[in-house]
Simulated scan of single mutants.
Amino acid sequence: MATAAPTAAGFQDCRNIWVSTLEQLAEADPRIVAVVNDSVGSSKLNSFQKKFPDRVVNVGIAEQVMVGVGAGLANGGRIPFVSAASCFITGRALEQVKADIAYANFNVKLVGQSSGVAYGELGATHHSIEDFAWLRPLANLTVIVPADAWETAEAVKWAAAHDGPVFLRLSRMPVPDLQIPNRSFRPGKAETVRQGGDLTIIACGTTVHLAAAAAERLATEGIAARVLNFSTINPLDEEALHAASATGAIVTVEEASVRGGLGGAVAEFTAAHKPVPVERVGFPGFLPTGSVDWLFREYGLSPEGIEAAALRALGRRG
């Protein structure tokens, strides 16, 4: 049985991994450039800028311009990684993401930093919990939410090699390495974190290790929960969703709004193909100001909260 669990030594800020990977790729490919909105520091691009000073474009606090510059660079044969806080790259520049990147099908890699509620006490203006719902309808935009350092590195490498628009959603919150043997990064394919047949927990990003911990708790109650890492939000792994429906109940877990996000996508699919109880763990809307830890606990993004959602889903199963 493949399992994943937090290990104290394994917690890492995935932004460090993203930039070290980008630097390695840039050494080998002169087409790779970075575009930022006065966010070199928060994007962890300081060392990249020192190594490649002529390959960083800082447009200042002008996110719409930033995305447009990325589109222009891609049209000129470069591979731009456009990096900014996720709340601004998807909120302020959504029209440019839609028209300049997705509609034009330009080879731009959008990197949404400090996603979800990572900014904590800065409140709703800096929370990025609506981004899944905004981006999912852009059918040709691949949306990837890495769950740990290894997956972050693999996602950056894949994005650089992929010919087409990509959105990488990265957090500033350290996460543990998932202890899964023989891992293989396959965009559009779910990763099995833990086997189980009584119900399925589908998670992404910073919540995957919490889902695995919830499955451990359920196991002590004699409940075998399957845990899937849905690191690709768009496109969804429909084969995995068919298999998840076969377990009879599903819990989705995301550091995002349950309206239109991963939970919404799974509910859409099950309603159309095989209706089963779906419990969505995430955020209901604008959130109060509070620390990341408090927000996670308050809205059930914890092993205990996910366990409770699983029991509710099992109670609804016919």
Rank of each mutant, 00 (worst) to 15 (best):
T3I: 13
A5Q: 15
A5L: 14
P6T: 10
T7G: 08
A8G: 07
A9M: 03
D13F: 01
R15A: 09
W18P: 00
V19H: 02
L22I: 06
E23G: 11
P30H: 11
N37M: 13
D38F: 06
S39P: 00
V40G: 04
G41D: 13
K44D: 02
K50R: 15
K51G: 11
P53M: 09
V59Y: 06
I61P: 02
V65S: 12
V65P: 00
M66F: 07
M66A: 03
G70S: 10
G70L: 09
G72L: 06
L73V: 08
G76C: 08
G77R: 05
F81I: 11
V82P: 02
S86Q: 09
F88I: 00
G91Q: 01
L94G: 00
Q96S: 00
A99M: 14
A99L: 15
A99P: 00
Y103Q: 12
N105M: 08
F106D: 10
V108P: 12
V111D: 05
G112D: 10
S114M: 09
V117D: 01
Y119S: 10
G120C: 02
H127V: 08
S128Q: 04
S128L: 05
D131I: 07
D131N: 11
L135N: 13
P137G: 09
P137H: 09
L138K: 09
A139K: 14
N140Y: 03
N140L: 05
V143W: 00
D148P: 04
A149H: 06
A149R: 07
W150C: 04
T152S: 03
A153R: 11
E154P: 00
E154S: 07
K157Q: 13
W158Y: 14
A161D: 13
H162D: 10
L168W: 08
S171Q: 04
S171N: 03
M173R: 14
D177T: 15
G188F: 13
G196N: 13
G197L: 05
I201D: 05
I201S: 03
C204L: 14
T207F: 04
A215P: 09
A219D: 14
E221L: 13
I223E: 10
I223K: 04
R226V: 11
N229S: 12
F230N: 06
T232C: 11
N234C: 06
P235V: 06
E239F: 03
A240V: 06
L241S: 08
T247V: 14
T252P: 05
T252W: 10
S257T: 15
V258W: 05
R259F: 13
R259P: 00
G260D: 07
G263W: 08
A265I: 01
A267V: 02
V278Q: 01
V281L: 01
G282C: 01
G282V: 04
T289R: 15
G290F: 01
W294E: 15
L295H: 02
F296C: 12
P303Q: 05
P303T: 09
G305I: 10
R312C: 01
G315W: 07
G318T: 15
